[in-house]
Amino acid sequence: MSSPPRRHGAWRRGLAPYLLSLPAGLWLALLFVVPLLIMLSITLKTCSPASGACVMTWQWGELPHVVNQYRGQFVTSLIFAFVATLLDLVISFPIAYWIAFYGGRRKNFFLIMLLVPFFVSFIIRTLVWEFILSNNGVVLTFLRGNHLVPSGFHVLGTGLAVVAGLAYNYLPFTALPLYVALERIDRRVLNAANDLYATRSVTFVRVILPLAIPGIFAAFLLTFIPAFGDYVNQEILGGTSNTMIGTVIQNLFLIDSDYAGGASLSAVLLVISLLGIWLYARLLGSRTIEDYL
């Protein structure tokens, strides 16, 4: 009878994948799942702003309360993040397209050129935008001087400035996935399209664009999600009536010491982001996400 050793072998083979995934699993559990659960549990706790001590009180009321209270900021964030993401797509598609198809041997050079500004700290970059867009900054001084805008025209403090800041700061998150998507389109397939009477523009619409769709969606998610939760751009470039939800969360945690409120809003933010990813996975398959992350 050879069945016992064989069973033993099978058992070991069956266990192997789990053993192999153990380090990654522990890593995920320790650095992602546990903090996430702690954050979620805080939504049900009552914390003292003075001592910082939290007690589990199973209060479910905080979440609907803050969601209702900050509905407007959610909507603002959604709109700003959406517009900034669209802007990024429109701006970075031609750039990514050009680098992918015409970059030749200097592709990497162009990519690095695209990324160089982003080696500078996020805050500094945004502060520079504040400087650029300021009323006495180069841009507005020039425009006013040439009577291209009315004398009272200002950008800083408006939603426009926030969207511009978001779009600028998250551009690489759009450009890189787009580049990857375009770069890996099989050039022979494009030859085939030309061969089958598709002109350049038809090839673009019928072949390049559809093949880039997963990349476009990935770029959208990768830009939209962080832009949605952003709290720096609005703080520095925004005005009085365009607070984003990230700023609210930051204030709840750091100024108001309202941990349950902050955690609740964070949870909602997380759910919205997961929804986007789920939608992506449903529409385009989960395999393709990995390619861009």
Binding site: T46, C47, S48, V55, Q59, G61, D258, A260
Partner: peptide
């Protein structure tokens, strides 16, 4: 100090724990 924006009733039930 232990109270967030809760109703009075909630607050009362909390105070001991807090």
């Amino acid at each position: 100090m232990t109270q967030r924006r809760f109703t009075r009733r909630q607050t009362l039930s909390l105070s001991g724990v807090g």
